[in-house]
Write a protein that binds this DNA or RNA. Sequence first.
DNA 1: GCGGAGTACGTCCAATGTCAG
DNA 2: TTCTGACATTGGACGTACTCC
Length: 921
Amino acid sequence: MTSVYTEKDPDTLGISEELNHGSCQDEELDFSILFEYPLCDDYQTSEQEELDIAHKVLNPSGVPYTHGEVSHYGPKSCNSSTYAEPPDGISGYLGDRYYLDPARQAGPSAVSPRIEITPSHELIHSYGRELNLGHPMNPANTSPRSTLPVPGYESAYREPSCLSPASSNSSTSWHSDTYSPYSPWGSPCVSPNNGQADDLCPRFQHIQTLTSPRTSPGTSPRTSVTEESCLGLNSSSPRPNSRSTSPVGKRTYDEHTNQNTPVAKHRSRSPSPQRFRDDSTPNAFNLHQYPYSSSLADAMNSLNTGSSCSIPSKIVKTNPSYPLYTSVELQQENYLGSGEQDVKRKPGSEQVFLVPPNWTKQLVPGIPFYSIPVASLPSLEWPVPSQVDQYHLQIEVQPKPHHRAHYETEGSRGAVKAPTGGHPVIQLHGYRGKEPLGLHIFIGTADERILKPHAFYQVHRITGKTVTTTSYEKIIGSSKVLEIPLEPKNNMKAIIDCAGILKLRNADIELRKGETDIGRKNTRVRMVFRVHIPQPGGGVVSLQVASTPIECSQRSAHELPMVEKQDVECCSVLGGQQMILTGQNFTSDSKVVFTEKTHDGQQIWESEASVDKDKSQANMLFVEVPPYRDLSMRHAVKVNFYVINGKRKRSQPQHFTFMPLPVPAIKTEPIDEYEPNLMTAKMSRSLGTLPQPYYHPQGMMTSDSCLIASMASCQQLRSGLSPPDSRYQQQTSAVIYPRSKSLSTSPLLYQQGSLMASPVPPMADSQRSVLVHASCPAQSTIIHQQQSTSPNHHPTSIIQFSPTNHQLRGGGLQEHQRIMYCENYQTSPACSPAPSASQAQRISPSHYPTVIQQQPYVQKMPKNRSSPSQLEEQRSSDNPKDRSGALRVTVKEENLDQLYLDDVNEIIRKDLTAVQGRGQT
DNA sequence: GCGGAGTACGTCCAATGTCAG
DNA sequence: TTCTGACATTGGACGTACTCC
């Protein structure tokens, strides 16, 4: 396996950075080439020692991590969810290298549609001069990519298999509608069943008849070799030269119709390969059903062997100034051992590294910048703050609110742009290091729930001359992530001109098992940026910032009104306050309607605001907030409003909070045993700080934690220091990865720094968050732990949260790990009057929609705050057997998204199973 | 429950600009 | 230097599926 980058430089050799796990049908190929990873144990330099150690800590296996999922192929990693035994066909693990056993019976073919370009010896050595495109081992086969059957690695790729290969229109992806869930790229291109056309993915059945594939499908001819270039997938187009096509082999309408003759009247939409999370997806190809197909391989090779399917000269054309390093040279340069680097090996297994010229001075051995191993990265669903200590990740230039995403069947629609015509700009402040870092970009949701990777959109890498930013694709979890360097020489600023957005077909995604989101009208996304900063002490600080929402549909850019900003987010119940809405597509007929809905979705109030049409413009509305329906209400009420231009032309609902009139005296009322949890959590949610359903799978929620959280939220509200768009910022506990030499065996503490997002120092100081690594990141959860130094400090905070709890499902948690929660303390703009903490305690749970509690059946929450020791006692006495019979879920006010219900149920089921299992043993 | 109208989705078409040969 | 072909990008439109009334 080689891990190869695709260098954006159009003159560089095409490099797809993604993992290619075995990719050659040519049995003569030296498979060991493809799966080797060089060691880089001695790459530290004196000035980098600390940071290198940090990386080693995070990568204790010693296998140099690479982009994509390469780390999954290393020795047993700490991440059990991603760890994979060497795939069948990879006969052993030697040191840090897997190698393939050529003698082993090849399994299903084309588990990887990504067939890596392995330049020949001659090619490599003539780099920059003359290029010999012949295959090093089989001169007759000039295809640089072939397909290596590597069965049985599903465990490694179930999760990361889900990205749309198609999304890499530019250079790196393939595409299939029906593809193996075991293939990270979907495997459309090689039939698992003897290569018969009817065994091919419908979208690719045509490829067998093709003889003259295009040379550079859907990609810049200068950037890289794409799979289709050798397999001719794009030749299917009836207009083969008319326009760019997806590298995945676009279906044409005719093709589609023909291949669905029985239902020709309708377009049958085959499933997208993206983001499969479950191999049981009905659309998934089960490669296990199919023997290795030599015939198809032959067919593929026959395609490849055509002159047109040689390595396109464009692709191998290189920049003459591009340096070429042999292994010896790299060793001398201290670059050897780069697991991240584009490692090319000649048949003689001599390593050759292709190092972009602009990296040579910045290159940290093994990686072009500080790129944390995927296995060590926090889940994309985890909330991460934008600011920690002196570090602050900031969007200097926001993306345009509209960007028409492209489908797999389309060509790219370019990179997301800024309103001014440029591109979004991200900057990391406070970084004093000398080494470049990797900035991750992915497409996240833009709804009211917690930020997470969007199910229906993926980031799409843009390449070409116009792109100035080097980018690399990576897979984290099941989402595609672009990684671009943040370089000190650029003041840690990056222009995001390489990120487009790919739309996945709704039907395909909705068919996924476990997918509860619907795609229809779910067209808003956010660009999410993350950076992981290694610390001298061995930890890593992770920062994240999300852009303002981006509407990705076609029509909405011209028709739907869109609110981008509101200068006021709350006022008193009396209303009357002027609110300025900034956005697009406002008309003279635009109206602003405030609504309130019950937790079950019933609208109980609607009031049209007064719009000052004289002042209003196409991008600005001056609105007078109407009074709330109940002037006597005594707690903050969250309502929505939207701008409507006409029938069905309304904006996304925006939030607004009506605050109660000041109350002279606050009476403390008794609360029931668990109400504090409800109360505080709900209060927080009501204040916009806890947008997610609130549940606690481990049954250890305490009133204190919730109270503290709510108080923090209140103080945040009061502070009024948050930016207007703060609700789109994930301001959460910091995550720091401390040094540990035993990541794989012992818990790794992620200790939070100061809660920088919180503008309230005392609370921020007292709020400490600890992310505990059990044995692997996938099993990690985040703890918010109270470490108050105050004499009246609260006991250990135990609030648990997980958007989908994937991280919590990794098995039974240890007792000391059970108490985990990390909520994104979303800041809110200034509001007045804000409820005090005492007011907050009076908030009635009945006003807030969703709370799920899982708690010990017999162990009720104490009325009085427990000391940490008491809590510990409770925990220690809470033996598994007891818990097995005690686990209970209380669903309050059912308004849960089914996703969360499913998650909770799943957690409980697994918990019970685990507990029962322990009980039996 | 049914049907028509409107809307959303997914795909295709065409124009334009850039770049390499 | 100019021409040509290939491709990326972009806006628009069409056919079908879906939703709403």
